[in-house]
Design a binder for these strands. Structure first.
Lengths: 316, 316
DNA sequence: TTGTAGGCGTTATCAT
DNA sequence: ATGATAACGCCTACAA
């Protein structure tokens, strides 16, 4: 009844057995199978919080991709807590998952996590591993920032601010780096006073850092936020300061979360293909499972800027 | 090493064994345990689509609640396809889940699903089972509609329309029924021409049914939509028809999805405690697992209307 | 109070 | 090409 060994049995017998099994309603017991083989046909997917709208599409993509190969996916939340993350990894290992996808972005306590994952096929999602010990699937953050800068540049903006994501986050780091690089590339020397670093990817932090920008005294006509929540925070603080968007200040987000096309004004943002990120991670992980010695790969998925109503010509 | 039988062993020995096990890094193998006990300490959660923002909080609540008792949760998507739902149930049963929560709202093909779940502790979430064969945890839809009607009534609205959800859906049915009932209760005879039934819970259907309402020729100054997506569709069609919200037509949604407080105008809607729904479902399911003979219970969680900017005084 | 043997449903190995 | 058997790691009944 094992397709892989069916060739060494009489085809007629095989057919007969299969038919009888079916008529009996026989279904293999995954626990018994797993106990014997030490494999579970199950893959883990670790996210900070399933409640964050970024992750459901990734999870769905992952599940759809791996279920095609007969694998199941189980998800767990870490709340960005390194201790919880370790627990979850241990719990999943004890359940004999065959591989693990990590969409948790915490750069600190890296060593502990890496050690916990040792020997298990693994892939990072939505983040890259600088040391390249582990495969990764991420969006092309630099290209996204480049497109954002190009759009604003084309609209006449020269003094562009950046609200960076938390620097303990892979995306926060990458997008801030890309911002400095792409500004220079566009012939706009980045002003360090116009880079504010958020402590969390939240609306509140977006507002707080916009306030900081405003307070710095340095002039700007546009903000590139490291993600959509930060951008929504910009909206709040700009309104509070009596500034209109986009007439006074243009705002660009990152991720293209659900419904940011319906906030006011509709948010111009970099669309990230979250579903595809998850699906690609699933495929990568499966090839890793099939061939554990294969060396890590690093995939960058293309992103595209979606121009909506939060960007307009520079005021000056 | 089993806490439940620890009392019939010498405390000193127990401590000794536990210590040694710990020092050896011993972790029980769930598969071996499950093979022997025919239990998995795992519960299933079936949703139409994890990508729908209603479900992540429910899932999270469920997970948090059951993990407190040492249970794991696994989720699967059905895409509202009865066939897929059966597959998923069978797959989960083969994996020996100890109980199943169903947040899938399809009323058709009920018998097949019920049969597939036979003998397995189960609970319906966000829907009620009229036959009461299965426990359920849902929001108090009738109270939500009552609050919506009361608010509009207080604002002077008398001709109130309803965009009902799909009638193959538990919530669509319940809210439409509640609408008729509560209108009468408020002394406002419901006009059947002012009840449009959406085929899906989508923005597009919300727009289409608003168009139907407008085309019916019957006058109205407010719309109660059966969920937030339908309400957003109202926005679109009203704008297209040159009608302002709330000046010309007030709109009330249902669910209080993430970010509907930031669309324009901010949506007045009935807040449903999705996290609590999931958590309560988890607790209900666990008690069902502990005591399989217990008869089904039906829990209704209270909802509260959140008044925002999409409702205002009646124009007339 | 402690020790031991048997079996849960598979798969893999070995003998036929 | 087919059939028999041991072992995976745990729990439980029973013996000591």
């Amino acid at each position: 009844m094992n397709p892989e060994t069916e060739h060494l049995v009489n085809p007629a017998t095989a057919r007969r057995i299969l038919k009888v099994a079916q008529s009996l309603g026989y279904v293999a017991n995954p626990m018994a199978r797993g106990l014997k083989t030490n494999r579970s046909l199950t893959l883990g997917f670790l996210v900070p919080d399933i409640t964050n709208p970024l992750f459901p599409p990734m999870i769905r993509g992952f599940e759809d991709a791996v279920s095609e190969q007969g694998y199941n996916a189980i998800t767990a939340n870490t709340d960005n807590d390194p201790e919880r993350q370790l627990q979850q990894i241990r719990s999943m290992r004890s359940r004999r998952i065959d591989g693990l996808a990590l969409a948790t972005a915490v750069l600190e306590h890296e060593e502990a996590a890496k050690e916990a994952v040792l020997g298990l096929p693994a892939v990072h999602v939505n983040r890259i591993d600088p040391t390249m010990d582990i495969s990764s699937v991420a969006s092309d953050d630099q290209s996204g920032i480049r497109q954002a800068v190009a759009l604003l540049r084309g609209l006449g903006h020269r003094r562009i601010a950046h609200i960076a994501g938390p620097q303990w986050t892979s995306t926060g780091l990458a997008r801030a780096r890309a911002f400095r690089h792409e500004m220079r590339d566009a012939g706009l020397e980045p002003d360090e006073r116009l880079i504010a670093v958020a402590g969390q990817y939240t609306i509140e932090q977006g507002a707080a850092q916009t306030a900081a920008l405003l307070a710095s005294g340095a002039e700007f006509t546009a903000i590139i936020a490291a993600n959509d929540l930060l951008a929504l925070g910009c909206y709040d603080m700009l309104a509070e300061a009596g500034l209109r968007c986009p007439e006074d200040v243009s705002v660009v987000g990152f991720n293209d979360m659900p419904f940011v096309d319906r906030v006011w004004p509709a948010l111009t943002t970099v669309h990230v293909p979250h579903y595809e990120l998850g699906a690609e991670a699933g495929r990568t992980l499966l090839s890793q499972v099939a061939e554990p010695t294969r060396r890590p790969t690093s995939i960058l998925l293309p992103v595209t800027l979606v121009e909506r109503a939060s960007t307009g010509p520079a005021r000056d």
